[in-house]
């Protein structure tokens, strides 16, 4: 089985392992206090979706380790698909940029096609009004690293601000995972069909173990709400993750949820072994649509469950391995 190598790097104490454990091991932000420093490299194998296999290498960030990775003969940076580099917004010194630059230099030779994701972390320490500016200033600073230009030219660099205390973490990691899924057009097409069948306002698909967003489809969402779609999806990720976590305390697993809210119905259900779907339907819209043609009254809940059941087969066939 082939794995995509993902490097998680950054200076010691910048928050790499905290992130990793929150995203992949269901830690809550407060739990990360327990984590100690990562020694050398911690390798985690992650299977997302059907056949997207990732090998995440959490690289200890002490200077001595960092210099070790770029020593001649070290194979750590070989065949990397993606480098996630974490900067601590408060504690980054000029020396750390130098190391970053050295890493990039080695990476350029060993994995020239590597994508780079820069996370400017611990943004919660910055005053809320100044965040955007501080972040941009920092990014400009990072961009000046001479070896980043090589990757920038290939359009392979992305940058995001994160904090483990709000949904920005999920946003950034959704982007990261999204960049690894090669074909989303097929997925989008299916979502659109599904959206029309159930008269949905909004559909969203999550990955089961991390609850990161894989795809969304704003079927009939009002324009002004579409603008906040990103922030809505991130917050939904966070909310459901919390619930999922507490459910595990009574040694059960999340299966499905139906919520009748003020004027919408919200359905959450397993779509495949690796995907959870959320469908938001405006009130009584579907009732009118489905009961128009038939004389037999069907409840919305039954109908949606049935549609999801039928959709499963289609979605199970989707291939995310990136093989052509």
């Amino acid at each position: 089985m082939s794995y995509k190598n993902i490097l998680l790097m950054g200076k010691s104490g910048s928050g790499k392992s905290s992130m990793r454990n929150m995203i992949f091991s269901n830690y809550s932000a407060i739990d990360t206090r327990r984590l100690g420093a990562t020694i050398d490299v911690e390798r985690t194998q992650i299977r997302l979706l059907n056949n997207l296999n990732l090998s995440l290498m959490d690289c200890g960030g002490q200077d001595s380790y960092m210099l070790n990775y770029i020593k001649a003969g070290s194979t750590k940076l070989n065949n990397a698909e993606l480098l996630i580099y974490v900067f601590d917004i408060e504690g980054t010194q000029p020396k750390d940029f130098e190391i970053f630059n050295l890493i990039l230099n080695t990476l350029k030779n060993l994995s020239p096609r590597c994508k780079i994701f820069l996370l400017v972390h611990k943004m919660d320490l910055v005053n809320e009004e100044e965040r955007e500016k501080v972040f941009l200033d920092f990014y400009v600073g990072v961009k000046s690293s001479s070896n980043l230009k090589f990757f920038l030219d290939q359009n392979n660099v992305q940058c995001a601000q994160t904090s483990i205390w709000d949904e920005s973490l999920y946003k950034a990691w959704s982007q990261i995972v999204g960049s690894l899924i090669p074909e989303t057009q097929a997925l989008q097409k299916h979502l659109k069909n599904l959206g029309n069948i159930v008269s949905a306002e909004f559909i969203m698909i999550f990955e089961t173990s991390t609850f990161l967003k894989i795809a969304t489809h704003p079927n009939s969402l009002p324009k002004d709400e579409q603008a906040d779609l990103d922030s809505i999806t991130q917050r939904v990720s966070g909310i459901i993750k919390n619930y999922k976590k507490s459910v595990e305390k009574i040694s059960a697993r999340f299966r499905s949820l139906t919520l009748y809210a003020n004027s919408k119905s919200i359905y959450l259900d397993n779509l495949t072994d690796n995907m959870v779907i959320m469908i938001v339907i405006p009130d009584s819209k579907i009732e009118k649509d489905i009961n128009k043609s038939t004389t037999v009254k069907i409840s919305e809940e039954k109908y949606v469950q049935d549609v999801i059941k039928r959709a499963r087969k289609t979605f199970e066939k989707l291939d995310f391995s990136g093989k052509k």
Partner: peptide, 9 residues
């Protein structure tokens, strides 16, 4: 939370 986020007016 879901209600306030997606539940509508």
């Amino acid at each position: 939370d879901l209600d306030s986020l997606l539940g509508g007016n």
